[in-house]
Design a protein around this nucleic acid. Structure first.
Lengths: 291, 291
DNA sequence: TGTAGTGTTGCTAAAAACGCAATATAAAAT
DNA sequence: ATTTTATATTGCGTTTTTAGCAACACTACA
């Protein structure tokens, strides 16, 4: 009986609709169904009568709903009371990250921080992941969600978040590139699309050198992984990007992963700030909230 | 943040002692430590100051303690209110099980039932596991926690609970049996202690026949697995018993498991009642609460 | 009778939790 | 001052739990 389950139940009791409630909470309907089953088992009686088409609250369900709301309210009160001290902290916090990271990795980090420091204003700048460290260095932002380069200058403080696997992607559509890949081919003949700079480019160079097939046929260089996926989807060539960028891309149906093309070392994604500023109250509080 | 964690925190806040609290709740100290860490992470501040030797509540911890007690109280209120209808159910319920099952398997079953039907009086009879079905058949009890025999009469209703592995145990102490086992030996020479009857005896006969070493040298037959462990511990011979009996035995330090002695088919442990009585309200309610 | 909408269940893969054993540290004892 | 004891935490392998997909079962409605 955790808070998430209670929230879901409260919402479900309002909407009386599993699918919608599940979507609202970013879980699959089956998960929600099982969560409710767990609750029912815990209290020892069924909370909802469902006849496979409609859902209504049982008497126990109504009581449970009130209970759940009370519990959640008390939790909120506790939060408020505990955060009063921390709430003194206020100001602006500038964050830089890629569009993709903003979707995939930032939300859970910010959620806790915002809860603990509601008065702090978050300013989010999105852009090419490769520019992240530069932004931090020139103090345009307080910190960035960034991939760790092989050589990380001493001036930075880096906190590990996750490993980001890279993949080689190719267009799904019928085009010249597609046909080349179908046949026997030399990598030096395949047009390749690359990031202008940054760790992803480094990864590519390392990977291509291993193939020992001469010079790469670079079709274009772009800034920003998101744009790179689009280029590939349009059939311009193949590219290397983080899988998570593809998953969140609106054109993900139009690219395929190439398998058996050799290992590509994954990114190490993390939160990066200047060492000199890591003791500033806001930045310190942020690192505190994510560790 | 589930109820168990809250209960543990409340107790810990009183005792200020991890090891004792952990034991009280039947978990290892490390588990408790991690549970508290989880709570602290959830609220975003430390609840206890510990300097590796002493534990004191932090300010946040005090507030959290109050919160936890409130939450638990509301849960109790909910329980009470939901159980009012079911509480109409009252009477006596006679249960039979072995001493060991009373420790190891019964508590979790009864806990839910008692919560849901507080007015029902539980009458527990412990005894030799092998007598369980007999007790049910002659209606001395309402149901029993029992091992399923190969042939289960149609008059019984059986609900599976768990697989109980059997083991061959021998005395740890230096004695004749011990020495025999150390050397090359024939199984027909080793003194063996057996249950008088019941599934465990059947298992033994099956197992011994596989060895094809003639007739077993049966030193003694006893009724009740618990007594059997004692006999083995005293050095009278080797025996076959459920592992769980050994684990709960006060003399478990004085017996060893024999390995590489062949497979013994495990018990199927379950709840067993008469088919004719499975629709009685109390018995039905019990099965409901454990399924 | 077919079709779309809805909740549940079987199954497998991933994640979380557990407990043991080792570790760290501080108080108490020698 | 050094050893012993008491206590909480951490590393790690194992077990248990949970999530989500896909298939299913059922119902309303066209």
């Amino acid at each position: 009986m955790d808070l998430k389950a209670l929230r879901m139940f409260v919402d479900l009791a309002k909407s009386l609709h599993f699918a919608k409630t599940a979507e609202l909470h970013h879980v699959s309907p089956s998960t929600l169904s099982r969560i409710i089953q767990r609750l029912e088992h815990e209290v020892g009686s069924s909370l909802l009568h469902r006849d496979n088409r409609t859902v209504v609250l049982s008497e126990a369900g109504k009581q449970y709903g009130k209970f759940a709301e009370q519990q959640l309210e008390q939790w909120q009160i506790l939060q408020l009371s505990l955060n009063q001290k921390q709430a003194e902290l206020q100001g602006k916090l500038h964050i830089y990250c890629s569009v993709t990271a903003a979707y995939s990795h930032l939300p859970p980090l910010l959620e806790r921080f915002r809860q603990q420091h509601p008065l702090v204003e978050i300013m989010l700048t999105t852009g090419d992941a490769a520019d992240a460290l530069e932004q931090v260095e020139k103090q345009a932002v307080d910190f960035a969600i960034a991939a760790r380069p092989e050589q990380l200058s001493r001036i930075f403080n880096f906190h590990h978040l996750a490993e980001i696997p890279l993949s080689v992607i190719a267009p799904t559509m019928i085009c010249q590139v597609q046909q080349q890949l179908q046949q026997a081919f030399l990598w030096s003949e395949i047009p390749i699309i690359l990031p202008e700079h940054g760790p992803a480019r480094k990864r590519f160079e390392l990977w291509f050198r291993k193939k020992q097939q001469g010079k790469a046929n670079i079709y274009a260089t772009v800034s920003g992984h998101e744009a790179l996926v689009s280029m590939v989807a349009l059939g311009c060539g193949v590219g290397i990007v983080p899988q998570v960028v593809v998953e969140n891309s609106p054109v993900k149906e139009r690219v395929d992963y190439l398998t058996n093309v050799g290992e590509i070392e994954p990114f190490e994604l993390g939160v990066c700030c200047l060492n000199q500023s890591k003791d500033q109250p806001l930045i310190k509080a942020f690192f505190e909230s994510i560790k």
